[in-house]
Amino acid sequence: MTTTTAAASADATELTRALLTAADPRRRRVDRTMRILIWGAFAVAMVPLVSLVWTVLSSGFGRISLDFLTLSMRNIFGGDPSGGIYHAIAGTLVITALATVISVPIGLLTAIYLVEYGRGALARAVTFFVDVMTGIPSIVAGLFAVALFTLILGPGVRIGLIGAVALSVLMIPVVVRSCEEMLKLVPNELREASYALGVPKWLTIVKVVLRTSVAGLTTGILLAVARVIGETAPLLVTVGVTDSINFDPFEGRMMTLPVFAYRQYSQGLATCPGGESATCVPDIAIQNGWGAALVLIVIVLVLNLAGRLVNRWFSPKLR
């Protein structure tokens, strides 16, 4: 009797243990399958990233040289392999800087309004439509800028400012969003302490809230810049193209890196009457395009990295 019960209970224990440790095989299979699928999803996402970065690196690296970075394309044509992208880098930096100058005050003040003052229907509407604005297609922003300046300056005007306005439409909501998040992180105790010392609200915001969150704000702005610096479509319809250096966004056409890359790609092969030589390379345009793409992607990655690092190194460890 006792032995059998003992045996039975031993069996039961074994069974329970088996159930507990091994679950049932079907559940374990499902769990394992899903684990593989989920790891797989991540791997799948890395394939295009790696392939893309590798393609740009390997195709563009051969074109990078000091001349390529410091010369413009003025008087360069056909298969001439001299010349470079300085005018495009300059145009990209000037237009993006101008867009930043327009966007940051508006975006930051809107974020301050939302965090420090905003309540009621207006604040809800602003929050909602800022979110909606992040989804405006970039080509529509370009069309808007063209439409606006057509009414002001007449048709056919192409200046850097129009591109900067188009980029601002895309950039402001991003700035508002990220600045809002950062301002919300500032603990209320700091504000209260400041009020208790008799500091007026505006001074509290400027001296306490903004100072505490400056690292986060910098990160947000850098990421917003990185977001718009590679925009092509709005610049394609607003800024025109040139092959000379132009630093003045209020006068004359400008070239930008993404537009340069696109236009070089569309130029196709050059004719070389004497065949390929040191002064005439048939596929120079596409090489230029990849070179510009590489420089652009490096700028974007540096901005992204700088944003993350600023936040990591300089943000106050409050808790």
Partner: peptide
């Protein structure tokens, strides 16, 4: 204060490194 100085330096360095790409005029 450290934060402010630090991020200003970081941004400044970034701007410099970007602007330093070219000082050469046209070819």
């Amino acid at each position: 204060r450290f934060t402010r100085a630090g991020s200003a330096v970081a941004v400044g360095a970034l701007a410099l490194s970007l602007a330093a790409c070219g000082s050469d005029p046209e070819p």
